[in-house]
Structures are given as C-alpha cells and as structure tokens.
Write a protein that binds this DNA or RNA. Structure first.
Ligand SMILES: [Mn+2]
Ligand SMILES: [Mn+2]
Ligand SMILES: [Mn+2]
Ligand SMILES: [Mn+2]
Lengths: 225, 225
DNA sequence: AAATAAAATTAGCCAAGACTAATTTTATTT
DNA sequence: AAATAAAATTAGTCTTGGCTAATTTTATTT
C-alpha cells in the first residue's frame, strides 16, 4: 500500500508523539505539531483509519496499528538515511539537512532505502544522534537523558539533539558542540535553572535551561574512562 | 521562483519537444507526450504563461522564454545527475533509474544539484548517453544519428538511447548492448527495413527498424581507430 | 449541579490539477 | 465554396488536502 505525501507526514507525526510516550494522541496534539487546523486533522484521521494505519477512539485517542507503526518507522528510516547522505557525501552542515530530507523521505522505491543504507555503510545513528530504524521497522531506544537533568559535576558526552531547528543547530556549531562532544555540568543556577557548563574542557559558559533540555546526553562511559 | 511538481513536468515536456525541433508545440502534442487530456494542458499553458516561463500564440504554438528554457534545463540537469547517482553509487540497472529520477528531480534546494555534480565527479553524460546540462543551463548537443539511418557496412558505437522505456532497456541488456558497444550494420532488409547487425564482433542478429531508430550512434571514431 | 471553557466535529468553501462533454475555431477534403 | 475532420477551448465536475465558522461533546471550574 502506498501513501500520499500528506498521509506520510501525518503518520510520521503520530509516530513521533507515540515515541514521546504522549498518553493520549489527540487531534489538537497533531494539529499543534504540524501547524494545521484540527478540522483538517480530523479529516486525515478518517483517511488513515480507513487505510488501517491507525485506530481512533475518543477515549484512547489515536493509536498506530502494527502496519502503521512499521510504515511510520520506514519513513523515519528514509529520512535519517538521507540526512546521513547529505551530510557525509554532499558536505552539508547539520543544520541544513533536515528540510531536504523532509522531501527525500517521500521518494517511492522498494529497494532505495536498503541500497542507500548499504552505500552509507549501515549507519546506526543520523547526524543529530537519532537512531536509524532497520528495514524491519525496529529501532534502538533513542537517548532520553537531557543535560538539564544531570547533577552538578557530572561529565557526559553529547549523544543527540532533541530539536533540529536550524537556529539551535547553528548555535551549537558556534559553541563548538557536536555529537560526541564531552561536557561537564559545573553548576545549576537556582534562580532560573541556567546551566554553567564546560565544553570539551574549555572555560565555563552559561546556557539556558531550555538549551539543556534539548541536548540529550550519555553519562555512562565505557570507552572514555 | 519555485514551481510545483506538475509545472515542472510540463516544462520539461515542452523542453523535450523544443529539443526535438518540433516546428509548432501544440496542446495536443503536449497532451500526447504526458498522457493528459488537452483540456488540462490548456489550463497549464495559462499557468506557465502567467509565470512567464512560456509564451503561447495560436500561430506559433508554445515557446519557452529565456527563464523557462533555463528552468527546464535545470530540471533535466537534476534528473540526469540523480540517474548517474542511482546507477553508479546505488547499483541500480539502467532500466530502473528513470522512474526514480522522475521523483528526485523535483527536490528543491539551491545547492543540491551542484553538490551532487561535484560528488559524482562532474559527469558529462547520464547512463542513457544524454548530455547533462550545466549549472548555467547550457547543454552539449545531444546525439542525433540513429542506427537505422546508417549505410550498410558502417561500424559505429552506441552513443545513447532515445527511449528510456524499461522493456527496451532490458532488451538491450539481454542483447549485451550498452553505451559504447561497437555495432556493425551488416545489411538492411528492404522488405520491412529490418536491420542485420553484428554486436561487438559477434554473430549477426536481426532487429526491427523501430529498434534501430531508438539507438543513437557515433560513427566518427577518433579514439577507437 | 450549573456554568464555563476547551476540544472535537460538522458543514461549507477554496485552490490545484486532473477529467468529460459540449462548443468553437482552424484545417483538410471533396 | 461547402462539407467534414481535427484541434482548441470552455464549462462544469471530481479528488486531495487545506481552511473558517458553527455546533456539539467533553472537561473543568465555580
Ligand atoms: Mn516530509
Ligand atoms: Mn535527524
Ligand atoms: Mn518528474
Ligand atoms: Mn536518462
């Protein structure tokens, strides 16, 4: 079964809410995420239900069916593989790739994703640190611990970024923060929860709580001692 | 100015007719090529005229403006660059790439084509032997001499294929004919203009006139003696 | 429990891009 | 020159995927 571009974007949005463990996926939640009108969302919920990609129940909200879950994962797979391609092969910066991948993910061909995967050397993570779903739709657990949740004096590595907004990514480039960069959380300013951090051993910098909530970290070092 | 997917497909179609030196590009000619209804074509002619990509005059038919010509060439540029990518990097066969490139050519990003061009090593021809337009919209003259037009006993090389239909390309694969393959035209059967040819020095084979009209050849050997 | 607010749904409208059927214009034959 | 055929155009319809405005349903407050 093939899907239209719009159907795929809705499906991906529902998948994201599902992964974020939103207890009840409502028309308004979807509308907010896509910037669409709730009335339009209700229409699409009907279409996706008819295609048995989702179920909808006033009590339970929207839920993905087994087919819907797999199809959504495969769209995300294509998105993230194309992001790797754009960054590694075509030399784009990490703040430029998301919007292009947003179009490339909809290219229809049964073997394209797998060929791209092979060509790229079977990458496990995309340039933003997000895990790439496999051909069977299975995906590794995304990172979930944020910099803002750490205790002071903790040392960690940047594992992924939550936001792929271009402004945020460019800010990170300026701060010299990328995937893998070691960061030490020096202090939390109790007044506004600002974070004093040391990036890669350099002098201290202060960033906002919002900033810290968008950096996903790995605080378990097996390789780095 | 950005164009919709449909606008781009119409523009490309008109560009093709222009390159084929069709004396007067009419709504029916466009409709036939795209498999659309002439009424739909008339609608789109209005849209493309409003965007000053073409002019339309009952006497002269459709003509590309300078902008329309360049934009059309850039769509073809993207199509052909993606075809090279799919064949050389992802390992597709030459009969599989056209339809996928038909979608990829519409991806919108100002630097994508040039980056892809560089990544592929600035190829001059696509896998079907068609010249790839440059970033400025200029393109080398396509090959135009067909196998069916040669005199018997002529030896040539396959330079390009006119048709990118999958059946035709698979037939060529089976006959072991690709771009660059040497072919000798042994004899023309006067009854139905069938062609007796020798592929790469092998024993004679007979092919139809239609077949010969879809093989573009180079009969001037500078490198091959 | 009533009142109020928020969310969901319905109804109706719009644009793009396709179609068919009918009509008008242009070209070809006789 | 008429008759006929072909091509172009117009008018009206359909589907997809948006929208707004109005209504109904569900949740929260008071
Ligand atoms: Mn998308
Ligand atoms: Mn990403
Ligand atoms: Mn196309
Ligand atoms: Mn080609």
């Amino acid at each position: 079964m093939i899907h239209t571009l719009s159907e795929e974007n809705y499906l991906k949005c529902i998948y994201r809410l599902y992964l974020d463990k939103v207890r009840k996926i409502t028309p308004t939640a979807i509308a907010d995420m896509l910037g669409n009108n709730p009335a339009s969302v209700v229409d699409m919920i009907r279409k996706l239900s008819d295609k048995t990609l989702i179920t909808y129940d006033k009590k339970k909200g929207v839920e993905l069916t087994v087919i819907g879950l797999k199809d959504a994962a495969l769209i995300v797979r294509r998105h993230r593989l194309w992001e790797v391609f754009l960054l590694e092969k075509l030399g784009y910066d990490w703040d430029e790739i998301h919007d292009i991948a947003e179009e490339l993910e909809h290219i229809k061909d049964s073997t394209l994703a797998d060929r791209l995967d092979k060509f790229l050397g079977f990458p496990e993570y995309d340039p933003h640190g997000d895990p790439i779903p496999q051909a069977n739709g299975k995906m590794a657990k995304p990172y979930s611990l944020t910099l803002a949740e750490l205790k002071p004096s903790t040392i960690c590595r940047v594992a992924a970024v939550r936001d792929t907004n271009s402004d945020f990514l460019q800010y990170l480039l300026k701060l010299d923060i990328g995937i893998g960069t070691p960061i030490k959380l020096v202090e939390i300013i109790t007044f506004d929860n600002s974070l004093v951090i040391s990036i890669n051993g350099k002098e201290n910098t202060t960033v906002s709580q919002k900033f810290g909530q968008n950096i996903l970290v790995d605080d378990s070092f097996s390789e780095d001692a």
